[in-house]
């Protein structure tokens, strides 16, 4: 209930009441932060606009960030309505994939998902679209309250 009230308020502040069907990446950040859950505190957003594959290689957006040990982080991703493809968010530690919001083998989606960090360091967030389609999306990094 509190989350809904907060969302409505944010929409009001931005002059977009009732318009939860965000049209811009900026509006989508507000909506996506709301979807992250009541126990999540927004830290950062990653806006992505990708085209179709170039030279046969799907486009991917990459963002480095520092995560701290003893924290639980939540990752979520939201597509803009205009997006052709479905966005997938992945977290990498060096070159090693830690988790993807979409499991290719089972076709399951895990959005949002939590990450219990035990190693402070630089991680990389990758955002791409399924099947190499073009699209626009926002990724959200939140801190999960203990």
């Amino acid at each position: 209930m509190a989350r809904i009230a907060a969302l409505l308020l944010i929409s009001l502040l931005l002059g977009g009441i009732g318009n939860l069907q965000a049209q811009t990446a900026e509006e989508m950040v507000d909506v996506c932060v709301g979807k992250a859950g009541e126990d999540a505190t927004y830290l950062k957003d990653f806006k992505v606009k990708l085209g179709v594959p170039t030279d046969g290689r799907p486009q991917v957006a990459r963002f480095p960030l520092v995560l701290s040990s003893n924290n639980i982080y939540r990752f979520s991703v939201c597509d803009l309505p205009s997006s052709e493809g479905k966005a997938v968010i992945k977290i990498y530690d060096n070159n090693r994939l830690i988790f993807s919001s979409y499991a290719e083998d089972t076709k399951e989606e895990f959005n949002p998902f939590n990450f219990m960090c035990k190693k402070t360091g630089i991680y990389h967030i990758f955002i791409s679209f399924l099947d190499g389609k073009s699209g626009e999306a926002v990724g959200i990094l939140s801190y999960v309250k203990k």
Partner: peptide, 24 residues
Amino acid sequence: TYEMGDPETVEQDGMIMIVQNERS
């Protein structure tokens, strides 16, 4: 220093949580 370990996936309150077992 760092201690190596593979991440594991658990479900908590209906949400997937990846627990990192590599630690600093």
